Simulated scan of single mutants.
Amino acid sequence: MPKVSVEIPQELLDDLDDHVGDEGKFVNRSDAIRASIRKTLDLLEEIDERQGRIDSSEADD
Rank of each mutant, 00 (worst) to 15 (best):
L41W: 02
D55W: 00
D61R: 03
R29F: 09
R50C: 02
E45M: 08
S30Q: 14
D60C: 01
D22Q: 12
V4A: 13
F26E: 07
V27Q: 15
I47R: 15
K3A: 09
M1S: 12
E58G: 00
V27W: 11
R38H: 06
S56T: 06
R53K: 15
V6R: 07
G52D: 04
D14N: 13
D48C: 04
E49N: 02
G52F: 06
R34E: 10
P9L: 10
R38L: 10
I54A: 00
E23A: 11
A59T: 02
D17K: 12
L12I: 13
D22Y: 08
K3F: 08
E58K: 11
E45H: 01
R29P: 07
S30N: 14
D14R: 12
V20A: 10
D18I: 01
I33Q: 01
L16C: 09
I54H: 00
S5I: 08
S57G: 03
I54V: 15
D18K: 15
V20G: 07
I8N: 01
L16K: 08
S5V: 10
S36N: 05
D14E: 13
R50Q: 13
E23V: 05
M1R: 13
S30T: 15
D42I: 01
A35Y: 13
E49C: 10
R38D: 10
L43G: 06
I33W: 07
G21V: 08
S57R: 14
R29G: 08
I54L: 04
F26P: 09
I54C: 01
K3D: 06
S30M: 06
S57Y: 04
I54T: 05
D15Y: 10
F26V: 04
E45L: 07
I33A: 14
D18A: 13
I47F: 05
D15C: 02
R53V: 02
A32K: 15
Q51P: 03
E58F: 04
M1I: 01
I8G: 05
Q51A: 14
G24D: 06
A32P: 01
M1Y: 07
A59Y: 03
S5C: 02
D55M: 02
Q51E: 15
S56F: 00
A35R: 12
V20Y: 04
L41P: 00
E11G: 05
F26C: 08
D14W: 02
Q10L: 12
R53C: 02
T40V: 06
L43N: 13
D48F: 00
D42E: 13
D15S: 10
E46R: 14
E49Q: 15
F26Q: 08
L43R: 14
D22C: 03
T40K: 11
E11W: 07
E11L: 10
D42L: 07
D55F: 03
D55N: 14
A35I: 03
D60G: 01
L43F: 09
D17Q: 14
Q51L: 15
K25R: 15
D31C: 04
H19A: 09
R29A: 03
G52W: 07
P9F: 07
V20C: 07
R38W: 01
H19F: 12
D31V: 05
N28A: 11
H19Q: 14
R50W: 04
N28M: 09
L41G: 01
R34W: 03
F26K: 10
E23F: 08
D61L: 06
T40F: 13
R53D: 04
G21L: 10
T40L: 12
G24L: 05
L41M: 12
T40D: 05
D48A: 15
T40H: 14
A35D: 12
L12D: 10
